[in-house]
Computed example of a mutant assay.
Amino acid sequence: MSAEAAPARNRASAIDGFRGLAALSTVAFHVWQQYFRYDAEGAHPPVDDPALGAVLSLEVIDLFFVLSAYLLTLSYARAAIDGRSTKPARLFLFRRTIRILPLYVLAVLVVWAMRNPTLPGDWRDLVEHLTFTHVFDRQRIFYTLGPTWSLSLEVLFYLLLVALGPLAVRACRPLRRRGSRVAVCAAGCAALFAAPLAWIAVAHYVFGVPHTDWVVYFGPQARFGGFAAGMGLAVAVVALGDRGRLGPRTALPLAGVGLAGLFALSLDSGPENFTFTFYHPLASLLWAGLVFGTVHVRQQTFWQRMLTARWLTTVGLISYSLFIWHEPVMLQLHKAGLLPVGQSGFPLAMLIVFAVALPVAAASYWLVEYPASLLGRLKDHRGRPREFYPEPATR
Rank of each mutant, 00 (worst) to 15 (best):
A198C: 09
E128A: 07
R382P: 03
G42A: 06
V291R: 01
E59A: 14
I81D: 05
L21C: 09
S364M: 12
F29K: 11
G383T: 03
L153W: 02
L71F: 07
L109D: 02
G270A: 14
Y35R: 02
F136E: 10
R11E: 15
L175V: 08
G208Y: 01
A288D: 04
T148C: 11
A183S: 11
H204W: 09
S57G: 14
D268K: 05
V329C: 01
A201P: 00
L233W: 07
W123Y: 15
L119E: 11
I200T: 14
F274L: 14
T313S: 07
N273Y: 01
R138V: 08
P281N: 10
W287Y: 15
G244M: 11
D125V: 12
L101H: 04
Y104R: 02
P248Y: 04
D137R: 13
D49S: 15
P196F: 09
G316F: 13
T313L: 00
N116V: 13
I200M: 12
K87R: 10
L63T: 14
A198Q: 05
Q300G: 02
V206L: 13
L246V: 03
V341A: 15
V215F: 10
L175W: 05
L252D: 05
P7S: 11
H204Q: 03
L307M: 08
M306D: 03
P390N: 00
L74T: 05
S75Y: 01
R176I: 06
S25L: 15
A43H: 07
L285Y: 05
E128P: 03
L72N: 05
A51E: 02
R96C: 04
A222N: 00
A183I: 05
F193N: 00
R124I: 11
A288Q: 04
A168F: 14
L156S: 05
T301Y: 07
L246R: 02
A5H: 10
P45C: 07
L151V: 10
P359T: 03
E327Y: 06
R305I: 02
R176S: 13
A336V: 00
L240I: 06
F388K: 05
P347L: 11
E369R: 04
S344L: 13
H381Q: 11
G270E: 14
V111Y: 01
A80C: 08
W199D: 06
H134T: 08
R395S: 12
L375N: 04
G258H: 08
R95F: 04
V27G: 10
I81Q: 04
A283V: 06
Q300K: 04
A309M: 11
L109C: 07
G20E: 09
G225V: 08
A54V: 08
A309H: 12
R9A: 15
G345S: 01
A77F: 08
P45V: 14
Y143C: 14
